[in-house]
Simulated assay, not measured.
Amino acid sequence: MAMSAEQAVEVLRAAGEPTRLRILALLAREELAVLELCRVLDQSQPRVSRHLKLLAEAGLVERFPDGAWVFYRLLTGREAGALVAQALALIDPADPVLLRDAERLDAVRAEREAEAGEYFARNAARWDEIRSLYVSEADVEAAILAAAGPGPFRRMIDLGTGAGRMLTLLGPHAERALGLDLSQQMLNIARSRVARAGLDRCELRHGDIFGTGLPGQSADLVVVHQVLHYLGDPAAALREAARLVAEGGRLLIVDFAPHALEFLREQHQHRRLGFSEAEMNRWLAEAGLAEIAAVELPPIRDGGLTVKIWSAVRPSARQRSAA
């Protein structure tokens, strides 16, 4: 539905201030925490928070608490968001202020990625041990097998494969399997594990979940296992994963329900403290997937983590036309 002239003026008024326009340009790149925006903008938290409040009231950004942190992201798919996108597209890419902001954001990202890389390198050899502190892996794996179905799968892709457990769990049901990860230490462990399992149809590559470079709709099973909570833009990673799902194929997302264990952020590089069902369902639907379902596995002890397994299917052209 189109906006009224009065609504358009309100949107433009909210965006029409230098700091708020800079914030919108940054959030167009990825969702960010308040303190990260303060670092990039070099402004105080109260000042940045006031600007964010005005943008949220105008329906341009979405605020969502995540444990002790608060994140913001652009609201897309609405007339106000489309108007802001058009305004940002008109700005000279060489604008010095926005270029400086982009460079500072890149520095924040690089710092975040360096810390994560050091963490993964330090803990790669005992990755399964760390995971087992929080959830019953046997129960999770049984639920993953049930959600994936019996196969056989023509091609399986495991994004952020880590130590390769999903390859050894699901690979026997796949004609071909591919695992991607950015950590060479993790890939080395995965190669050893896959070789010990005798899975000669499994390939391991160094690759980025945000830009895999793989052909679209090329796998009938795509798995993202305990990866999204580490990422700066989980929605973008999910879109790339969904892009790889063939018609009739399935995407499995395994991650945590919302929780308040801040030490996972402080000590284990978790960026997001879980995902709500509404948030995940929206992302999956926006990525063109259907038949969305979720299985919840409670923690093995009080104060632990609830694991959720989301599954969704890419409908065939016939199903889409029938709908």
Rank of each mutant, 00 (worst) to 15 (best):
M1P: 07
M1W: 03
A2W: 08
A8C: 07
V9R: 14
V9C: 03
E10T: 08
L12I: 03
A14I: 08
L24W: 09
L26C: 09
L26G: 08
L26T: 05
A28N: 14
E31Q: 15
A33S: 11
V34S: 13
C38S: 12
D42T: 14
D42L: 15
S44E: 15
R47K: 14
R47I: 06
R47V: 13
R47S: 14
S49I: 10
S49N: 13
L52C: 13
A58F: 07
A58Y: 08
A58V: 10
R63I: 12
R63V: 12
F64G: 10
D66F: 10
Y72H: 14
Y72D: 06
Y72M: 09
L75G: 10
L75N: 10
R78K: 10
G81N: 12
A85S: 15
L88T: 12
L90H: 09
P93S: 06
D95V: 05
D95M: 11
P96A: 11
V97G: 01
V97H: 03
L99F: 03
D101W: 07
E103A: 14
E103V: 13
R104V: 12
V108Q: 08
R112T: 12
E113I: 01
A114N: 10
A116W: 09
E118V: 07
R122T: 12
R122L: 06
E129V: 13
Y134E: 11
V135M: 12
S136N: 15
E137H: 05
A138E: 14
A143N: 08
I144G: 01
I144P: 01
A147F: 03
G151S: 01
R154D: 10
R155M: 02
G162P: 03
L167A: 07
L167N: 02
T168W: 00
L170D: 00
H173G: 00
G179W: 00
L180T: 04
L182E: 02
Q184W: 05
Q185A: 14
A190Q: 00
V194E: 07
V194Y: 09
A197T: 02
G198H: 02
L199K: 05
R201C: 04
C202M: 03
R205D: 03
I209V: 15
G213D: 03
L214P: 04
A219G: 06
D220C: 01
V224A: 11
V224M: 14
Q226L: 10
Q226R: 08
V227A: 07
H229M: 05
H229T: 04
L231Y: 05
L231Q: 11
G232K: 01
P234W: 09
A235D: 06
A237D: 04
L238T: 11
L238R: 03
R250E: 05
L251C: 02
L252V: 02
V254E: 06
A260K: 02
A260T: 09
L261I: 13
E262I: 08
F263V: 07
R265F: 10
Q267K: 10
Q267F: 04
H270A: 11
R272W: 15
R272V: 11
L273P: 09
G274K: 08
F275M: 05
A278M: 04
M280W: 04
N281E: 15
A293K: 08
A294K: 06
V295D: 12
V295M: 07
P298N: 08
I300R: 15
I300T: 15
R301Y: 15
R301C: 13
L305Y: 08
L305T: 10
V307L: 07
I309C: 06
W310S: 11
A312V: 02
A317M: 14
Q319D: 13
S321K: 15
